[in-house]
Structure formats: C-alpha cells, structure tokens
Amino acid sequence: MSRRKITVAVTALNAIDSPGPGVSVIRGLKESKIYDVRVVGLAYESLEPGIYMHDIVDRVYQIPYPSAGVESLFARLEYIHSRENLEVIIPNFDAELFPFIRLSERFKKLGIRMLLPTEHQFEERHKINLPEFGKKHGIKVPGSVPAYQGAEIFKAAETIGFPMLVKGKYYDAHVAFTIEHAREYFNKISAKWGLPIILQKYVKGVEYNVIGLGDGEGNRIAAVPIRKQYITDKGKAWGGISVSDETMLKLTDHFIESTKWRGPFELELMKDEKNEFSLLEINPRIPAWVYLAIGVGQNIPEAIVSLALGEKVEPFKSYEVGKMFIRYSWDMIVDLKEYQQISTYGER
C-alpha cells in the first residue's frame, strides 16, 4: 500500500536527561504505515540533539520561546510554512501549548492543522485547578493549594501536613518533610518556573502512568498504562513496562468522556495501599515515553496526524502487556559547521 506523503512539524527535540518527547514522536511518525512523513523539527536551542539526527529529522528551524509572545511565534511559523508547506504541527511542551492553542485558528487558515485541547480543557486540568477538577469530574485527587509566597506554606501545612509535594506550575516536584525543606524547594522552583507553586498532599504508594488520546467527542482512541521501573534523579522514567489494569483504563475513559478531551495526554496516578488510584497530575501532551505505546501497538503520533487532518480514526482495541522500554544515551559526533549553521541562521 502506498503511503500518503505529508509534512509534519514537531517540537521538543531535546532528547536529554530530562527528555522532551519530540524524538520519540518522530520515530512513531517515521514508522507510520499510512503516512510517508517528512519531518520538520522545531527547536528552541541549538544543542537540542534531535537537530542533528539526520536520519529522522529532515529539516530544522529554531523558533522563539513562548515568552516572546504569540505574534513572534506566528511570524516565525508563517515563514517556516512558506518554505516547507507544513500540514500538521505536533507541539510537545507544556509551556508552549497555550500559544499554540491561541494560534490554532490562524494556523488553520494557513492550512496547518493541530490536535490540541481547548483553552478551557487546558486551563481546567491545570495543577492549580486540580482539586476543583477532581470535584467536578468525580475523580479522586490529593488535596492541594497554590502558594504565591513562601509564608503561605505555614497555613498550607495545617491542612496538607507533612510530607508534602512542592511542585512547579509546569515542571519539577520535590517531597518536603519540614517547613524549611518546603521553603527551600519553593524558592528553587519558583526561581526557575515562576509562581504559583503548588503544595500537594503526599500520597504514599506506587506510581502508574497512562498515555492516552481523546478525539474531542468523548471517545478514547488510545490508552496504554505503564509502571515506571527506573526513575532518574530528575524524576524521569528511564525504563518502564506496559501493564494490564482495568481500573486505570476505566478511569482514563471516565476522564475522556467527562472532559471530552481533545488530543494526547498523560495521567499521573498513585496507587495506595488500599489499591485505590489518586490522580496526581494531567499532562496535556504526549509524554517522553510515548515510544513504548508505539512499541506495544498503538502508534499515537500517527493517530494524532489523522485526527488533526479530520479523518476518522478507529480506536485502538488492544496493546501488548509486559513490554518494556529502556532508554539509553548515545553520543553523536557533529561537525562544527552544522552547529554553526543552526546557531547563526536558525535553520538547517
């Protein structure tokens, strides 16, 4: 069967120790049975490893950071589109999703499609709003409060207690056992990711994660639950295994039905000693371990492209249980000319 030629732009090429999902997403696209994908990598920094992976990334352009504003991003992508004729963009960073959501209608007019949650969905599931989200959708979540000043930790400690999780609004989380610990993490995380900081009740148990894909009409297109087996000191999975758990799949279905979620997501769940799951976080994007889902039979990036193009996608019915992913690092030898090219011209 001949595959349809298509150009897809992908962000998060930072396949580093705290990896972005871009390279794994691209591997899924390249393994597609229905699309012959030409990949345009979108990078923020000139040392993102994906820039130099010529076998899977066909062209690369630097794009401005979200802090530069939506107009800068639009102007840059308009230029890239004029050169590459982009058909689909898959943004993969939490921090860039908001500007991409804001620009989706303008991109559509240019002929560029995306599959993203709505602005309401994006905001509603935010860590800051998680307790209200849990109440509204009938999902068990640990108690949490946003803190804008270090002094608020004292009051929060009265209701949440210790240990507590101190989390950044986009990334980073630490377990604090004392007020001093919590203040230290508050300062450290807020300096990097801004305010507020989320103070969340610590749930003791085993962490599980689910990658999923909703079609925006309440239907589950894909879902694979895993248990992380090896977690780095940055809290990132370096190994994991697909598991079979009806409770997690039911919870995922309930999440998709109740929110009418559109696009990919990751649910971070904690299973306590009573075997009950609490929802710790909803990441509104593809997680870095997406290649495991592809490896067990659910090519989520391929399905995202189809849904973004408005095509009917049959939900994945099954996946292989007991398959593992083990991440590794790999040194590439890169000519200085290439680095110079991307650093000077912002494209290659």
């Binding site: 085993v206 599980y208 895993i226 248990r227 087996q229 994991g240 295994i241 697909s242 598991v243 079979s244 758990d245 249980v321 007991g322």
Partner: peptide
C-alpha cells in the same frame, strides 16, 4: 490466571508490572 511463570522461575504480574 494471568500471572505468568517462566521455566526459569521468573514471575510477571501484568496488573501491577512487578516481576
């Protein structure tokens, strides 16, 4: 019934992911 035991004595629990 879904607990797998290999000839080498390796057990995998597909519900929890533990081995």
């Amino acid at each position: 019934s879904n607990i797998a035991l290999s000839e080498s004595g390796f057990i995998f629990n597909p519900n929890t992911g533990e081995s």
